[in-house]
């Protein structure tokens, strides 16, 4: 009683407009949770072929995941996502570095525009563009043929290679933004101090810049990994049904076979992998950030 009385006596901090600010956010959050709950509950329902109505409770849908065909799709998805994340990192770091460190304002803005604009043209436009680039009569094959480097066109469309090439370009803007933010926070004087103490450019990068941007590198890579896990249009169009990722299975099961329960299971699986990847990164990154935190 005493404690609660004291609590009451303490002057409440005024919170103008609290409800006005709070209710819309709460409504949005509830809506999203409701949508995810729908997916979750469908995962436990019996599928009746030919009917949109799902039946009673079952765990059958989860057991179905163990079939080799689904396991191989899952393995492919993981492999493609991992390769995409790593290549995206390798190609994005130099661009982010140039974007942050270029001496001229114009060059910085130019790199920024070239690197970030693709993010906003949308996935359909970009995926379609890659069909034009990678197709057997596409841009790359035409250039190679004209240069006399190949006789028959290379097969790039409908291969894992083609899908990864498109996905990496797709993921780079986000990675570049994450890495640029990390690089922008590196104290230039730390690099100068290292040089002053005898470290050449390569050693400055190896001992100072790289470790200080490691949190950005890790979080960027994991974000891209999770992102690629849920890529749909690229494997769908560039993969052309020959490269299947979880997203394509969900589409096939949900919108072609109308097997909502199994589509729900696959959706949950993708969500679980994405959350798992990000969750496992969290303690790692925060440890890195504690280590590297600039005062």
């Amino acid at each position: 009683m005493i404690a609660s009385a004291r609590w009451r006596a303490a002057p409440a901090r005024p919170r103008p407009f609290f409800l006005w600010l709070f209710l819309p956010s709460l409504a949005a959050a509830l809506l999203f949770v409701a949508a995810l709950c729908e997916v979750a509950q469908y995962a436990f329902r019996v599928f009746t072929p030919g009917s949109l109505e799902a039946g009673g409770f079952t765990l059958e849908n989860f057991a179905r995941l163990a079939r080799p065909i689904y396991l191989s799709v899952l393995a492919d998805t993981l492999l493609i996502s991992l390769a995409t994340a790593l290549f995206t990192l390798l190609l994005s770091y130099p661009v982010a570095y140039a974007m942050v460190r270029a001496k001229s304002d114009f060059v910085r803005s130019l790199i920024m525009l070239l690197a970030v604009t693709p993010l906003f043209t949308g996935e359909i436009v970009r995926t379609y563009a890659w069909i034009l680039v990678l197709g057997s009569n596409g841009f790359v094959n035409s250039v190679l043929k004209a240069a006399g480097l190949v006789n028959a066109p290379l097969t790039m469309l409908y291969t894992r290679f083609g899908v990864i090439v498109a996905l990496v370009q797709f993921s780079m803007p986000v990675m570049i933004i994450i890495l640029a933010a990390a690089l922008a926070h590196v104290d230039r004087n730390c690099e100068r101090a290292a040089a002053n103490l005898g470290a050449g450019p390569a050693k400055v990068f190896r001992h100072v810049t790289l470790p200080l941007t490691l949190p950005g590198i890790v979080s960027g890579t994991v974000v891209i990994f999770a992102w690629t896990m849920s890529a749909f249009s690229t494997p769908q169009l560039v993969g052309g049904g020959k490269v299947l990722m979880i997203s394509n299975l969900v589409y096939l099961q949900g919108l072609s076979s109308f097997n909502f329960p199994f589509a729900a299971v696959l959706s949950l699986l993708a969500l679980a992998v994405a959350i798992g990847a990000l969750g496992s990164m969290r303690p790692f990154v925060s440890r890195l950030e504690r280590k590297a935190a600039v005062n």
Binding site: D187, N189, C190, R192, A193, N196, H207, L212, K291, A293
Partner: peptide
């Protein structure tokens, strides 16, 4: 040359 920077520039990691 040994330099001491204004903000010290100690390596935080």
């Amino acid at each position: 040359t040994g330099m001491v920077f204004q903000n010290y520039a100690l390596f935080p990691h």
